[in-house]
């Protein structure tokens, strides 16, 4: 009885503000003239499919880059103790709670028309380098918020790996790269899959960064936003949202079934 009371607030809240709205979202997506055929229209519409493809590609690129960079840094920071190490860790984790809009702004300061890179390249090499307002800018923006997440996950796992495993491989004659390939990376695999899946799902659903960089970057969340606010195409916006939600949810479930750990996207 008491335990039922414990669940009561949760049940009321989730029913009212999660279950019912999601049902409404699905029903709104098929509430237009086409009904369920709207999902067929998404698949047959080149603009939506191109946008889905672009979103997947940029998310994939970000995931690979973030995992490579953050794993290298995480292993370096786990295996070496030196003065200033905690400063490095702090500098690699502070953007963890930055929203996408702020990261978009930071990328503009870096690669925008008045950005640092352009200022340097114009003054020294007399060439303009502006990358902020495109897919490249988006890539760097997503990389910016993925690195801290992947780094923290990988470091937490790397610190738990039994150091004797590495020593054992070395005692058997393994060279550093062989140790990395045969012992360290297999040990990190669950963390790599989990953090990679989070980076990917977060990039797929992110909105703020693209919103700040430019309105003409056609990633899926931006398309949904445009359909909803500008075209007032509620059914299409809802259908694309359902599709996007299903993709990210399924991906995270799949990653979790591989790793056995619970993981979450955020941002």
């Amino acid at each position: 009885m008491f335990v039922f009371l414990c669940f009561l607030p949760l049940l009321i809240f989730s029913l009212a503000f999660l279950a019912l709205p999601l049902v409404r979202l699905v029903s709104a997506s098929v509430g237009g003239e086409q009904g369920w055929l709207i999902y067929a229209e998404i698949v047959s519409n080149p603009r939506y499919m191109q946008s889905l493809l672009d979103t997947v590609l940029v998310s994939l690129a970000v995931t690979i880059a973030a995992v490579l960079i953050a794993t290298t840094a995480a292993l370096f920071l786990t295996h070496n103790r030196f003065p200033g190490r905690s400063v490095l860790i702090a500098s690699l984790t502070f953007p963890l709670a930055f929203p996408g809009v702020v990261i978009g702004f930071l990328i503009i300061l870096l690669g925008g028309r008045q950005g640092l890179v352009n200022t340097i390249s114009s003054n020294i090499f007399d060439t303009r380098i502006v990358f902020a307002y495109s897919m490249i800018g988006l890539f760097f923006g997503y990389l910016y918020f993925s690195i801290p997440r992947v780094l923290l996950t990988v470091m937490a796992t790397a610190e738990k790996l039994d150091p004797a495993l590495v020593e054992a491989a070395r005692s058997l004659g393994a060279a550093p790269l062989q140790v990395l390939r045969d012992v360290t990376l297999p040990g990190l695999a669950p963390a790599l899959i989990a953090s990679g899946a989070i980076a990917f799902a977060t990039a797929m659903g992110a909105f703020g960064t693209a919103f700040t960089l430019a309105t003409n970057i056609d990633v899926l969340p931006m398309v949904i936003y445009t359909e909803f606010t500008l075209s007032a195409n509620i059914a299409m916006a809802s259908a694309l949202s359902v599709l996007l939600g299903l993709v990210t949810w399924a991906l995270l479930m799949f990653a979790r079934s591989l790793t056995g750990t619970s993981i979450a996207a955020s941002g």
């Binding site: 039994d162 004797a164 054992a168 045969d182 012992v183 297999p186 040990g187 695999a189």
Partner: peptide
């Protein structure tokens, strides 16, 4: 090794 340090992936 004390913990044996057997490679769990092999």
């Amino acid at each position: 090794f004390q913990s044996y340090a057997l490679f769990p992936n092999m």
